[in-house]
């Protein structure tokens, strides 16, 4: 059973739809206690990092504890950003801190018409093999829509460049994250979600 955390940040419909298409068993827990016994946790997110303030307290502690127990955790978009220590977008809100580094605003380049937000399909560069991105090849396209991103560190398993490289996908033991939207990335995205469901049995 996968726990899909609904903390009020945008729209869970697409993620639900993708999980349903992949025959996943999932629920949206109404209280942090319900994370006991789940086989995986997904923290989605669309919008502003400040929305993750709703995870402060009970949810944060419960997700931290479940991750310590070895339960696989997947953060999507702002959910991935939350895995880090914090973000420039809302410096007063603390991240989970499962991964080192801070999320920063992307740089645009007006002369080359490279805009912020970074919206659309961009390629993944895969620096090393990973569990989450198994079956994908370097150059695979996924759908992004964001203005902030995490730095490329040792945990980066997929990097994307928009003016500068940033971490598009991360993996550290049982902690996984994707800056793009796998639920909107057609076959490549479904493959990634399928990989996570395989890990989170």
């Amino acid at each position: 059973m996968i726990a899909l955390i609904d903390y009020g940040a945008g729209n869970l419909t697409s993620v639900r739809k993708a999980l349903t298409a992949l025959d996943a068993e999932y629920m949206t827990p109404s209280s942090p206690d319900e994370l006991h016994g789940v086989t995986g946790v997904i923290v989605p997110g669309v919008g502003h990092f400040a929305a993750t303030a709703a995870l402060e307290g009970g949810w944060r502690d419960a997700i931290h504890a479940s991750t310590e127990r070895g339960t696989p955790l997947l953060g999507i978009c702002v959910g991935m950003q939350w895995l880090f220590e914090g973000s420039e977008e809302a410096p007063e809100v603390r991240g989970l801190g499962a991964l080192q580094g801070r999320v920063r605003r992307l740089k645009g380049d007006a002369a080359r018409r490279m805009k912020i937000p970074h919206v659309g399909w961009n390629a993944l560069d895969l620096p090393r093999p990973s569990t989450l991105l198994a079956g994908l090849e370097s150059g695979a396209y996924v759908y992004f829509t964001h203005s902030y991103a995490a730095p490329v560190t040792d945990d980066c398993i997929g990097a994307t460049t928009h003016v500068e490289p940033f971490a598009a996908a991360v993996e550290r033991k049982n902690v996984f994250g994707v800056q793009f939207h796998p639920e909107k990335s057609s076959d490549a995205g479904l493959q990634i979600l399928r990989n996570f469901l395989g890990i989170a049995r």
Partner: peptide
């Protein structure tokens, strides 16, 4: 439509 496609 949303049931058929995993695209924006």
């Amino acid at each position: 439509v949303a049931r058929e496609i995993f695209l924006p």
